[in-house]
Design a protein around this nucleic acid. Structure first.
Lengths: 258, 258
DNA sequence: TTTTGTGAAGAACTTCACAGCG
DNA sequence: CGCTGTGAAGTTCTTCACAAAA
């Protein structure tokens, strides 16, 4: 995503490639599942399959963290879980605020995976006075007026924006001014932030449009293929247009009214 | 994302880079806004700023679509909107089904941006019999039993999975078997699909973890910087760790119980 | 022998910088 | 003269393929 990370002697941090960072959570999830099944070790091949990536890529990714594997054996599951968690900063507590408690905001507040890994919903904030006090996911919604004090009092550095597009930039500005330096944006807007602030976006309509693009191509190729292969009954499953990748390619999606 | 797109003489399609495809929706959104303000033309510089990208990148992106600009002038807004829409396949109707009408599914169903660009919620599907018939966003929820017939009857090729992780693969298999070839997955699971099926994922917890990684680094650098710059009062906004990128770097996020 | 860790090759993407069209 | 379109250079990411550790 962002990061201008240039220069700086690197106080030891080997500068993990961004693409690798983006995959660590994936590995962590797969490893956690193995851990729960009490599997002691995995090979790069097995873990790669579980995470849906190529094993060489996985090994290279891990090589940026250090040499945590054992040749001829594989990786110790528990140990790797710990190392990746530490690398991602999940061994500490991250209070998070969610701003905009509409359908989506409520869904996010109810999202179980939040608490699971270091993240804690510190507060839910909404501009609608009628919402104030109403509990969502067991947490009382607070009014936007309190945004600054909430952030400061709880030492929040990560904010989630789930407001309509029109309000997003303004909310963003207030979050940043109050001290938030990482933002997850679900509103379909490009946010502008000062240097030093990270923004990631999640945009449903962008994702759908990307799918539509490929879908359209498939339709075209099908028609072309019909001419070539006529009724040659090729198992539709072995066509050349693959797609098991599921992630690291382009943008991220956004959710909310356009 | 996916796509194994190798070989094939290319029936004229210049094979637009995946990274470019992922940005087209962004440009389209910016252009639509300009169009609504009746702005007739934009320069690559202006449009790039609105979309949050570098202008050279934007020009190169557009060059894959053709030469739609006028030197010395810029791009015709309406014309570009049309060309990009066509390229993305948004000039046709895309019926979509959403499976799993929990908090998130409901939020997605209510998402306004859906209808806006060619997408139409053809059906809402949930496994809970108690949900059946209940309208969400004005559309009655149907039971999973009807999944196959719904897909076939409506010619659905795009499916959205918003179920808990445990059900996702099974739902995916049924969608694919029924003819869906593009899937947007909000469940925190790696889906396996046959070749020819595209999967994109949206994963909240992955996004948060990526943010946490950078956040942690910032904290470290801050400490390091304190030693170097002591109380040298550097405007916190000009630090080296930037981040206005907002997207195309790593993975995509997922939403649902881990 | 199995499986890691990694140089080196390759592919994809980004950015530069400028020729050339309008 | 302004701004697009694009070769070429630069950067990042992926994949190969194999030496070496266990």
């Amino acid at each position: 995503m962002a990061t201008g990370r240039t220069h700086r002697p690197a106080t030891r941090s080997r500068g993990i490639p961004e693409a690798t960072v983006a995959r660590l959570p994936l590995y962590l999830r797969a490893l956690t599942a193995l851990s729960e099944r009490s599997v002691p070790t995995v090979s790069s091949e097995e873990l790669a399959a579980a995470a849906g990536v190529n094993s060489a890529k996985l090994r290279k990714d891990f090589s940026y963290l250090g040499s945590y594997g054992t040749r001829g054996v594989g990786y110790d599951v528990e140990y790797l879980v710990y190392q990746i968690s530490r690398e991602l900063g999940l061994t500490q507590d991250w209070p998070v605020v969610i701003v905009g408690i509409g359908n989506l905001g409520a869904a996010l507040a109810n999202y179980g995976g939040f608490a699971s890994r270091g993240f804690r919903v510190a507060a839910l904030i909404d501009a609608d006075p009628a919402m104030a006090g109403k509990p969502v996911a067991g947490i009382p919604v607070q009014h936007t007026d309190e945004l600054e004090s909430i952030i400061r009092d709880n030492g929040v550095s990560i904010g989630v924006i789930a407001t309509p597009a029109g309000a997003a930039q303004q909310v963003c500005d207030r979050l940043v001014a109050a001290g938030v330096t990482s933002i997850l944006n679900f509103a379909p807007t490009v946010l502008s932030v000062p240097d030093g602030v990270d923004v990631r976006k999640v945009d449903l309509s962008i994702e759908l449009q990307i799918l539509a693009f490929h879908e359209q191509r498939k339709a075209g190729e099908e028609a072309a293929a019909e001419v070539t292969a006529q009724a040659a009954a090729v198992p539709a499953t072995t066509r050349e247009e693959s797609a098991t990748d599921q992630g690291p390619d382009g943008d991220v999606p956004a959710v909310m009214p356009a």
